[in-house]
Simulated scan of single mutants.
Amino acid sequence: MSLSIQHLPELSRFQAVIDGHTCLIDYRLENNVMHVLHTLVPQEVGGRGIAAEMTRFALETASSHHWKVHPVCSYTVTYLKRHPEYTNVA
């Protein structure tokens, strides 16, 4: 699946609209640390790998900006455990 994911730094958010439903990752940036606070994929579009693709996009964005990532969101914690290729940002 290839999503059109937007990074909205003014809202501290990554988002994608799928079939009219807004999927999002909220974060807070402090001292070059992106605290991932919340991942939301509405039930109506769940089960398609949307959260995983959005999380990958967020982690790639953090890496490209040389930010560290502090996962507060349980989904992001689990994703990082399953994807050791992102230890450079964790």
Rank of each mutant, 00 (worst) to 15 (best):
F14V: 11
H70A: 07
A16S: 08
T22C: 02
H83M: 02
V33C: 08
L40M: 06
R82C: 00
T61K: 12
T39L: 05
E60T: 01
L8M: 02
W67I: 00
Y79C: 00
I5F: 07
I25R: 12
H65L: 02
S2T: 11
V33G: 03
I5S: 00
A62E: 15
K81R: 13
V17D: 11
I25C: 06
T22E: 15
A58Y: 12
L11Q: 15
A90I: 05
V33Q: 08
F14E: 10
E85M: 00
W67K: 04
L40W: 13
V77D: 00
E10S: 13
A52N: 12
C23G: 01
C23H: 03
Q43R: 15
M1T: 15
G47R: 09
I5L: 00
A58K: 09
S64N: 15
G46D: 14
F14H: 12
L37C: 04
R48T: 05
C73E: 11
S63T: 07
A58V: 09
V72H: 11
L29Y: 14
R48G: 04
V36A: 08
H66F: 05
V69F: 01
T39H: 09
L40Q: 11
H21R: 04
I5D: 04
R56M: 09
S4V: 14
S2F: 07
E53H: 06
C23S: 00
I50E: 14
A52C: 02
E30D: 07
Y79Q: 02
T61P: 00
V41I: 05
W67L: 01
A58G: 01
V45N: 02
T87F: 05
L8Q: 09
A58W: 14
L80V: 03
A16G: 03
M1N: 15
H38K: 10
L29M: 08
R56G: 04
L24F: 13
E10M: 06
A90E: 14
G46T: 10
T78D: 10
Q15V: 00
V41W: 05
A62I: 05
S2I: 08
A62F: 14
T55H: 03
Q43T: 13
T87C: 03
E85N: 09
H66V: 02
R82I: 01
L24I: 13
A90N: 07
L29W: 13
G47K: 10
E30A: 08
F14Y: 13
S74H: 14
K68Y: 02
T55I: 00
Y86H: 04
E60R: 05
C23R: 01
A62H: 14
C23W: 13
C73W: 08
E44C: 03
E44G: 01
P9Y: 15
S12G: 12
A58N: 03
P71V: 00
L29I: 01
V77L: 09
N31W: 05
R13V: 04
R56D: 07
T76P: 06
L59C: 10
E85I: 01
R56E: 07
L8Y: 14
G46P: 04
A16H: 11
G46N: 10
F57G: 08
D19F: 03
S4K: 15
E44R: 06
Y75R: 00
P84E: 03
R13G: 02
F14L: 06
T39A: 01
Q43H: 13
A16T: 15
V36F: 12
T87I: 08
